[in-house]
């Protein structure tokens, strides 16, 4: 039985539908990310769960109660905003204690709770500082402590890391995930950063144009994208145009090379797609599709080297691991690249 259920949720602003027939079931303690491009309706979904926006239709059920008619202050939900949401007139400790004070929790218990929360986020000594005396990362951690202090049923985070430096972003997302696991709190995390979503979620909802295109575990989303949009939005994708020459056996021609994909295809042209790591430089066992290519840009990323190569009209990105004893290829080198037909996704036009 799902703990949080969203059913046929719709939202229109004026005549524009920004959330369309959105369904989602979240288990207790699950960490769900809403991932999608800017303007796809992620924030709107989150704000409807929080109660800041009223759905045009549909239901939001938390712990078997339909909450749509409840005001935000009656829903017992914790929320972390993108930035600048700490009360500037209150100290860190007072910010964290705010929700408890509203609830009428006594002073001693409040103070104990604040201490516990600040220790949890790793800032036990900053209780007396004001928000403007904190770094952005510290502010967001305090915002998390403030949201969690009231022991909410559900935690909502709307791009809480997007205003921070790359380094802090990575360490803080790990910390958020650790705290979430420890408290076993049901969480919806909004982001437009696919790496962020892939790295910390139990499941990801990929949204586009107000619609949930696919819901699945990161591994599934990345390796078995359900739609062309998901395939292109999550991770880097090589697109290869091919002509189907024998539909039943799934044989296609790419440039002058012919290969069977081993599954039936519709006749005509198809677009095949594969991840950079599914393309090897040189010949490789189990990768019988071999294309002749010329090396273009070479980006040395550290452990991984991302190489651009051109095979006829097809532009390919491929990743190889850095090996200290082998220098990377250079621009202009003529090479062979190999792909396993099993790694090729067939995208509908």
């Amino acid at each position: 039985m799902a703990f949080l259920k969203i059913e046929h949720l719709e939202k229109s602003f004026g005549s524009t539908r920004v959330v369309k027939d959105f369904d989602l079931e979240i288990q207790k303690g699950e960490f769900i990310s809403l991932l999608g491009p800017s303007g796809c309706g992620k924030t709107t979904v989150l704000r409807m769960v929080a109660g800041f926006e009223t759905p045009s239709s549909g239901a939001i059920v938390i712990d078997d109660k339909d909450v749509v008619a409840l005001r935000p202050n009656q829903r017992n939900i914790g929320m972390v905003f993108q930035a600048y949401a700490l009360f500037p007139n209150l100290t860190v400790g007072e910010n964290v204690a705010f929700g408890l004070k509203i609830k009428g929790v006594g002073k001693d218990e409040r103070e104990a709770r604040v201490k516990e929360m600040l220790t949890m986020i790793g800032l036990p000594d900053l209780g007396n500082r004001y928000p403007f005396q904190l770094s952005g990362g510290q502010q967001q951690r305090v915002a998390l402590a403030r949201a969690l202090a009231i022991q909410p049923h559900v935690l909502l985070l709307d791009e809480p890391l997007s205003a921070l430096d790359a380094k802090i972003r990575v360490s803080l997302r790990t910390q958020i995930r650790e705290i979430q696991r420890e408290l076993q709190i049901t969480t919806i995390f909004v982001t437009h950063d696919q790496e962020e979503a892939l790295s910390i979620s139990d499941r990801i909802v990929v949204m586009n144009g107000g619609v949930a295109e696919q819901v699945g575990a990161p591994f599934e989303i990345y390796n078995r994208p359900a739609t062309r949009f998901v395939a292109q939005f999550v991770g880097t994708l090589n697109l290869i145009e091919a002509d189907v020459i024998a539909p039943e056996s799934g044989t296609v021609r790419i440039g002058t090379t012919e290969i069977s994909l081993g599954r039936p295809l519709k006749p005509g042209r198809v677009t095949l797609a594969c991840r950079p790591e599914a393309v090897s430089l040189g010949l490789a066992e189990g990768r019988p599709l071999v294309l002749h290519a010329e090396i273009g840009e070479v980006h040395f990323l550290g452990a991984v080297i991302r190489v651009q190569a051109r095979a006829g009209r097809t532009q390919l990105s491929l990743d190889t691991f850095n090996r200290p004893d082998t220098p990377p290829p250079a621009a202009g080198d003529k090479v062979q690249v190999s792909i396993s037909p099993a790694d090729l996704l067939v995208l509908e036009a």
């Binding site: 929320m79 905003f81 930035a83 949401a85 209150l90 009231i150």
Partner: peptide
């Protein structure tokens, strides 16, 4: 965000005005 943060933490409109 201040208003909304106060609200989701359980505060009423007048509590928000008085405390924030």
């Amino acid at each position: 965000e201040w208003r909304e943060a106060a609200e989701i933490l359980g505060a009423s409109g007048s509590q928000y005005w008085r405390m924030v």
